[in-house]
């Protein structure tokens, strides 16, 4: 039974990492929103799996909350934002697609290296997900650093937050509802604030390229 459990977790974590990689090779913002929605569903599914196999009914609540907030509410808000700015494309990122994918693979390798001592000391059935969660964390950070459009960066941040939630789910048999709630609200607040900033950037500079912010200095 543990075998199925770890296989399922591994599958879900890999899927989440894959959705992050989508952001690196696609250029249209709508695709990013879709990728994020899938990632959130996968996260909810993993949490549900942990709840089922770990016999922790409270985690079902966490999963439901994840599904409602990250799987539905935030993608809907992102969709509104994206429609408002019209057809925006991540036309010229700082790092081109090919190099981005190479760097992402290196980051995932690094994550595997980092996670090795950790995996050696733990006997959690979910430990196979640890390097993938770390890899997702690095890739999301890389998205934030290398992409120019503000919406892409917001999505990168949200994926980073998903990575942390995934790390918590696979590294600790799921965190209590209270902690999860705190993190949710934190991320939601962060998202709302960023949304306001993106609107302001758009109003001020008529674009959502954060590069333009450099003009604010002096």
């Amino acid at each position: 039974m543990d075998g199925t459990f770890s296989q399922l977790v591994m599958l879900g974590s890999s899927g989440m990492l894959l959705t992050a990689l989508i952001v690196l090779w696609r250029k249209g913002i709508p695709a990013y929103v879709t990728a994020y929605r899938w990632q959130a569903w996968l996260l909810a599914a993993i949490t549900g799996t942990v709840a089922y196999y770990g016999r922790d009914p409270r985690l079902y609540w966490v999963a439901a909350l994840l599904l409602a907030l990250k799987g539905a509410a935030i993608p809907a808000l992102l969709g509104t934002m994206q429609r408002r700015f019209g057809a925006q494309r991540e036309a010229t990122p700082y790092v081109n697609t090919e190099t981005s994918l190479v760097i992402a693979s290196l980051l995932v390798l690094f994550a595997y290296v980092l996670a090795r001592p950790w995996m050696a000391v733990t006997d959690l059935p979910t430990r196979q997900g640890l390097p993938l969660a770390l890899g997702l964390l690095f890739v999301s950070l890389f998205i934030v650093v290398s992409r120019k459009k503000a919406i892409t960066q917001v999505i990168g941040f949200l994926m980073l937050e998903n990575a942390i939630a995934l790390l918590a789910a696979v590294g600790t048999r799921g965190v209590p509802l209270l902690v999860e709630l705190g993190v949710f609200l934190d991320a939601l607040m962060g998202f709302l604030v960023m949304q306001i900033f993106v609107y302001h950037i758009h109003e001020t500079f008529n674009t959502i390229d954060v590069e333009e912010l450099a003009r604010l200095r002096h």
Partner: peptide
């Protein structure tokens, strides 16, 4: 403090990766 947001984000990322390494 060059004024580029991406540079600051890069500092954070590099610092994290370096600390872990």
């Amino acid at each position: 403090q060059a004024g580029f947001l991406h540079l600051y984000l890069l500092y954070v990322t590099v610092a994290l990766v370096a600390a872990l390494a």
